[in-house]
């Protein structure tokens, strides 16, 4: 196994390089440039834009730009943002904490809801509980987060006036008040995201458990006289976890990548809002850095998922 992991890690390097080439090409070829507002302002002559393009190297061939980027990256220089004119790593570091907190909590919330609800729903299929859980899950993923987010704001901030809807990363308070304010402002975004993620996860868990629960070995386990609880937790859930692990591995990189829509709605200064504003402003160095870190996480969690498969089902072998 250690040999396998080492080999996979070594393979990851060229594969990430390959991904970075594709990412860079896509970003470089995508239309647009960072000087939108300069264009409609008559006080800014066009030469200014041309000079800026030249200064940022936007007119160089893509290969030249890629080699410049990758060699700087290899030396730990992440480049600097066209629109903020500061180093990209500083920009990302400023924002990563908030994203980890909000998105991480929402993922945990999603798991905490989805796994028990999905399992209970599957053990009693078509019961009242199952029907209610399913209907709520359908509502959950039929409604986009831009909609539920706004609904939450209307209900809890505007009509009831319980929660603030503008997120502040640096709260000017100390002690327990600081914690209280942080929790208060994070409730809505975490709930919106957690429910959206949880809704689809419930469906997957239910389906996976349902697939397993009908198998003979479960009947055998019951026949042996094991308690229902033990049967479900030890025999059913463990075997049903493969698709769930896959999904979680798919979701984990998002904890870094952020949630673009939700972060926009609640003004959370996270990676997601950085990414979208950089994309809209065509701030290529920032987009490249964020997506590249994201790609590394995708590859890493894919590897972790593969290792977990082997642990969940020892018959799975990798060579």
């Amino acid at each position: 196994m250690p040999y396998y992991i080492l080999r996979r890690l070594l393979i990851a390097i060229p594969s990430l390089l390959g991904i970075s080439v594709v990412l860079f090409t896509v970003l470089a070829l995508a239309p647009g440039d960072p000087f939108e507002e300069l264009a409609t302002n008559p006080a800014v002559p066009p030469e200014v834009r041309m000079a800026l393009r030249a200064k940022f190297g936007l007119d160089d061939p893509i290969m030249v730009r890629y080699v410049r980027w990758i060699s700087a990256m290899a030396q730990g220089d992440w480049g600097y943002s066209f629109v903020s004119r500061i180093n990209v790593d500083d920009l990302i570091l400023q924002r990563v904490g908030v994203t980890l907190f909000v998105i991480g909590s929402s993922q945990i919330l999603a798991l905490l809801i989805a796994i028990p609800v999905g399992v209970i729903a599957a053990t009693r299929p078509y019961s009242l509980f199952d029907q209610i859980a399913n209907t709520l899950a359908f509502v959950g993923f039929s409604l986009p987060t831009f909609f539920t987010g706004l609904l939450f704001i209307l209900i809890f901030s505007i009509w009831l006036d319980w929660l603030p809807f503008v997120y502040q990363a640096d709260i000017q308070a100390t002690g327990w008040r600081w914690y209280w304010e942080h929790i208060r402002q994070a409730i809505m975004p975490i709930a919106v995201l957690g429910l959206f993620q949880g809704a689809s996860l419930v469906r997957y868990v239910r389906s996976a458990v349902l697939d397993v629960i009908r198998l003979d070995y479960v009947t055998t386990a019951r026949a042996k006289g094991l308690g229902e609880r033990v049967v479900i937790v030890k025999h059913v859930v463990r075997n049903a976890l493969i698709p769930v692990v896959t999904l979680i591995a798919l979701q984990m990189p998002a904890i870094f990548g952020g949630a673009i829509v939700t972060e926009q709605i609640f003004r959370i200064p996270g990676i997601g809002s950085l990414l979208i504003s950089s994309i809209l402003a065509n701030d290529t160095p920032v987009i490249m850095a964020v997506t590249f870190v994201f790609a590394c996480l995708v590859v890493l969690f894919n590897l972790i998922a593969d290792i977990l498969y082997g642990w969940l089902d020892p018959r799975i072998t990798f060579r």
Binding site: S15, I19, V26, A30, P31, V290, T291, A295, N302
Partner: peptide, 18 residues
């Protein structure tokens, strides 16, 4: 799997624009 990872990491918006 590399292809899958690649597609998962592509930022969708610039890709769509392209």
């Amino acid at each position: 799997m590399w292809l899958t990872d690649l597609f998962l990491s592509l930022p969708q918006l610039p890709l769509l624009l392209l």
